[in-house]
Design a binder for these strands. Sequence first.
DNA 1: TAACTGACTGACCGATCGGTCAGTCAGTTT
DNA 2: AAACTGACTGACCGATCGGTCAGTCAGTTA
Lengths: 213, 213
Amino acid sequence: MYSTAQPNSESISSGEAAILEAAEVLFAEKGFDAVSIRAIAGKADVCKANVFHHFGSKEGLYLAVLRSAVTESKQILEELEGASGNQQERLRQFAGRHLRSILGHPHVSRLILREALEGGSERGKELAEKIVGDNFSQLVDLCRAGQKSGELRPELDPALVATLMVAANVFFFEAASVMRHIPEIKFYDDPQAYSAGVMDILLNGMANKKGER
Amino acid sequence: MYSTAQPNSESISSGEAAILEAAEVLFAEKGFDAVSIRAIAGKADVCKANVFHHFGSKEGLYLAVLRSAVTESKQILEELEGASGNQQERLRQFAGRHLRSILGHPHVSRLILREALEGGSERGKELAEKIVGDNFSQLVDLCRAGQKSGELRPELDPALVATLMVAANVFFFEAASVMRHIPEIKFYDDPQAYSAGVMDILLNGMANKKGER
DNA sequence: TAACTGACTGACCGATCGGTCAGTCAGTTT
DNA sequence: AAACTGACTGACCGATCGGTCAGTCAGTTA
């Protein structure tokens, strides 16, 4: 196999990477069908035929984008592991970092949300599972640990708790443009305050208070 | 103006209504750009040109669909008003009914979620506000009433509480196809159990316990 | 009856779509 | 040098897109 020169810089547009990046942005913003190969090639400053040379078809390109988004997403979520303090503090940290990572990678987030919306048992949904799967289990384990340590009520379903945490963060991202126009909502541009408020309620609701049965 | 015969049945496909209905389903399932006028006309059993006769353009049709979805959505949400019991019980009922109405009208829900995802300050986002706006305020008021009655902690942001409730329900709908494949999640096909569990945590987290400061 | 309406249709249009193909070119490999 | 590679391009293709148009037709109005 012939190796390209590949100057010692990473990911900087050497054709294929540029296409992938342009496609990620456009697919995330407009969706699969609303984006033409010509538009992607144009944004990547590349000939249209070159896109097919690298990715075979539009669907091939989309899958490649999705694959790279999933990989990136996994890496992001894996960075959420390290946490300090007691179990409650860990959950709090996890939630805050999770929200920050979602907001910090809007293209990836949007892409995955779109894929989830499309639903069905078709394209990429299994990929969406793959993203969530492992890391969701990790969060569930975190909740379970909180129950074992006695900090959280043992009768709660840890998966439901984890779902609620994820739901709160995902919703903050996807509804941001709507929330901005609802007068009652003051926290629309302060994700950390939002996360803190959410976790205040959740942890208080899950806390195992000694006098309680 | 000439009045069409309009036999005494409602909404049953007399051309325009059939187009609107077909368009709602297809737009919700695949998105604006993925659906052709031909496909809509075909599903409505109508000539393609007839679609333009009634709605002018594809965007006109889409806006009409969105408008009808908004109207329908408002009607649905307005039915959520009546609730009995104390404030906590009212919130519990609201959440359960809200989730049920989302799940019971998947096309409308999907359409609105799609519109929110598209974001920006463009098309229909203001419509999305119009849907949420009033009814969200209503939910916030419900939370405030709970605080006034002393059942809920007064220092909580009622808008944040309301957001959390909506987030939990919306997420259940949009992530349903993913949750189904996550082994830890047992409640994926039991929305009422989910809603009950969520509200158990939330209300417990918001409850104003006498001994607490 | 005659004029007119809006619902509806089939045939057609230019533009754009995803995709193909023959070929150029810089850099390896032998 | 010759053979070969993969990255890349411009020109082209059939299909389908959104949209138009002239015209048919049932029912209303006058």
